[in-house]
């Protein structure tokens, strides 16, 4: 027998398995908006693998990676697409700047999708990232 943290709901387990299998950078947050996983592609973007950092509270991951507004100010937790997806159970999209582990900054677009499996509401969200396309075209 192994010690374990609280069992994750099945929908988060399946979401993590999906994110593990794709090359689009992506985060997975739980119902408290805590970062519970990000995939290898996100790790490459951020400069650190998830295995190196582990679970992070919303305050921890926003202070580590951002995001920041165009004027350089941190985006408030309440304004994050992640927060809106988890809180409101609605998808959200935003453009902002993130900071990688080596201090480099990158402008990205992010889309957050709530994960809803019961009437009790969202049990988390998946957040996908793309480099921001200034041409206005849809990013690949």
């Amino acid at each position: 027998m192994e010690r374990m943290a609280a069992q994750k709901p099945l929908e988060l387990i399946l979401a993590r398995n999906l994110l593990t299998s794709i090359s689009t950078p992506a985060f997975l947050v739980d119902q408290d908006a805590a970062l519970v996983f990000y995939n290898e592609a996100a790790g490459a973007l951020l400069g650190r693998s998830f295995e190196d950092v582990g679970r992070m509270s919303p305050e921890d991951w926003t202070s580590t990676y951002g995001p920041f507004k165009a004027n350089g100010q941190p985006v408030e937790l309440d304004e994050l697409p992640t927060t809106r997806a988890v809180r409101d159970g609605r998808p959200a999209h935003a453009v902002f700047t993130i900071r990688s582990a080596n201090g480099g900054k990158q402008e990205i677009e992010s889309s957050a999708f709530p994960i809803v499996a019961s009437e009790e509401g969202s049990s988390g969200a998946m957040i996908f990232f793309w480099p921001h396309d200034r041409s206005g075209r849809a990013s690949p």
């Binding site: 027998m1 192994e2 010690r3 374990m4 943290a5 609280a6 069992q7 994750k8 099945l10 387990i13 399946l14 993590r16 398995n17 999906l18 593990t20 299998s21």
Partner: peptide, 21 residues
């Protein structure tokens, strides 16, 4: 499905808590 059971953390294994011990 989509994971390596032998390496995965217990809380991320479907059915782990249900079947443990």
């Amino acid at each position: 499905l989509g994971t390596v059971l032998a390496d995965n953390e217990p809380e991320w294994i479907s059915g782990y808590d249900l079947a443990r011990d």
